[in-house]
C-alpha cells in the first residue's frame, strides 16, 4: 500500500505545529491514493511522541532514536531519514518549510536522487495520473507554479506553516510503532553544538489569533508603540511590512510576507500597509482582513474584508479607547 510520510519536526521533545498540519493534508492525499499515513520521528528519548502522532491521524510511526540525534544536525538527520525511505519506499514525503525542514529536505532529496519542491502552498493528487501536484509561489510571489515529479519517488515537498489546518485529535488512537536502528556517529555529524542562546521572547506570530500590523505609512518607531498598545489590548501579536522592518522601527521577527512569516489569524489588522504582493503572500489566508489606508488605490483594499479609507492613527486611537471602555465594563 502506498504510504504518505510526514517528517515530524521535534526539538527538545516538542513537536512543531506544522507537523500536525501536514498530518491533516496527508490524510486527504492518502485517501485519494487509497494509501496510508506514516509519521517519522527522529531524536533521542522521543518515543513518548509516537502516540501523539497517531492521535493526529497517522496509521504508523517510524521511530529512530540515537544519541547523535539529540539536537538537530544536518548529516545524521539526513542519513536517518533517507535510509528509512530507501527501505520502505514512501510515495510522498512532506516536511514543514521551516528553517529546520528546509535544511534537512535539500540533503535528503539529494541522497535519494529525487525531486523536491520548496515552500509549497497547495497540494493535491492529479486524478488521471495519481501524481502529486505541488503549487508554490516563485519570483517574489509574482507567479505561482505547479510542479510535478513524475518519475522519481518519493515525491518530496516542504510545505509552508499555517496553510493547512490541524486535524482533530483522536482519543485512544490505534496504530503501529516501528522502531528502526540506524548506524550514526559523531564523526558523520562533523559539527558540535557549543551553546544555544534562545530568543528572549519568541514572537509567536504564525500562531496568533489576532495580528496588528504596521507599515511604512505608520511613520516611525514611536508610532509603533501605539500599535503595541492596541496589540496588548487584543492579546495580539505585532506584525510589520518589510519597509517598516528595514526602517528599523521593529525587528525582523515581526515581518510578515514572502521573506518573513506566513500568518493565518482570525483577524488581521493592517495599518499603513500598501499590500504589495510579497506582503500579501504572508497574510492573505487570514480569516478576516481589516485594512486602514489613506490611498483608495492601495492594493491591500483588494483583499481586505473591511477597508477603511482614512488616517491609521485616528482609527487606532479610537479603537484603543473603545477597547479600554469594553474592558472596564
Amino acid at each position: 500500500m502506498k504510504e504518505v510520510w510526514v517528517f515530524i519536526e521535534q526539538e527538545e521533545n516538542k513537536i512543531h505545529p506544522v507537523s500536525f498540519e501536514l498530518l491533516g493534508i496527508a490524510n486527504t492525499l492518502a485517501e485519494d491514493l487509497s494509501g496510508r499515513i506514516a509519521g517519522v520521528i527522529l531524536g533521542s528519548e522521543v518515543d513518548n511522541l509516537a502516540p501523539e502522532v497517531l492521535a493526529y491521524g497517522a496509521h504508523k510511526v517510524y521511530l529512530v532514536e540515537h544519541d547523535c540525534l539529540k539536537y538537530y544536525r544536518h548529516r545524521p538527520y539526513a542519513k536517518a531519514l533517507s535510509d528509512l525511505a530507501k527501505k520502505y519506499h514512501p510515495e510522498i514525503l512532506l516536511l514543514g518549510a521551516t528553517p529546520l525542514g528546509r535544511d534537512l529536505a535539500g540533503g535528503v532529496a539529494t541522497l535519494l536522487e529525487t525531486g523536491l519542491t520548496a515552500d509549497v502552498t497547495e497540494l493535491s493528487i492529479e486524478k488521471e495520473t495519481g501524481y502529486l501536484l505541488m503549487t508554490r509561489p516563485a519570483y517574489g510571489g509574482n507567479i505561482m507554479a505547479t510542479i510535478v515529479c513524475p518519475h522519481h519517488r518519493p515525491q518530496m515537498a516542504t510545505v509552508r506553516p499555517r496553510i493547512f489546518s490541524v486535524p482533530e485529535r483522536k482519543e485512544n488512537p490505534k496504530g503501529e510503532i516501528i522502531k528502526e536502528k540506524i548506524d550514526l556517529s559523531e564523526d558523520l555529524a562533523g559539527i558540535e553544538r557549543l551553546n544555544f542562546i534562545p530568543k528572549e521572547k519568541t514572537v509567536n506570530l504564525e500562531y496568533a489569533d489576532v495580528v496588528v500590523a504596521g507599515g511604512k505609512g505608520i511613520g516611525g518607531k514611536r508610532e509603533f508603540e501605539k500599535l503595541k498598545e492596541l496589540a496588548e489590548l487584543l492579546s495580539a501579536e505585532l506584525g510589520a511590512s518589510r519597509l517598516a522592518v528595514e526602517s528599523g522601527w521593529i525587528s525582523y521577527e515581526h515581518q510578515v510576507g514572502q521573506t518573513g512569516k506566513t500568518v493565518r489569524p482570525k483577524v488581521y489588522l493592517a495599518f499603513g500597509i500598501s499590500g504589495a504582493i510579497q506582503h500579501r503572500a504572508g497574510m492573505q489566508n487570514s480569516d478576516f482582513i481589516i485594512a486602514v489606508n489613506t490611498d483608495k488605490g492601495a492594493p491591500i483594499f483588494k483583499i481586505a474584508d473591511m477597508g477603511i479609507l482614512g488616517d491609521w492613527k485616528v482609527v487606532a486611537e479610537a479603537l484603543i479607547s473603545a477597547l479600554k471602555k469594553e474592558k472596564d465594563k
Binding site: 509574482n142 477597508g307 477603511i308
Partner: peptide, 14 residues
C-alpha cells in the same frame, strides 16, 4: 499562473 485575488470586501471612507 498569476495568483488570484480574493473578492473585495466593503470600503468605509471616513
Amino acid at each position: 499562473f498569476t495568483p488570484e485575488l480574493k473578492k473585495q470586501g466593503s470600503l468605509y471612507d471616513l
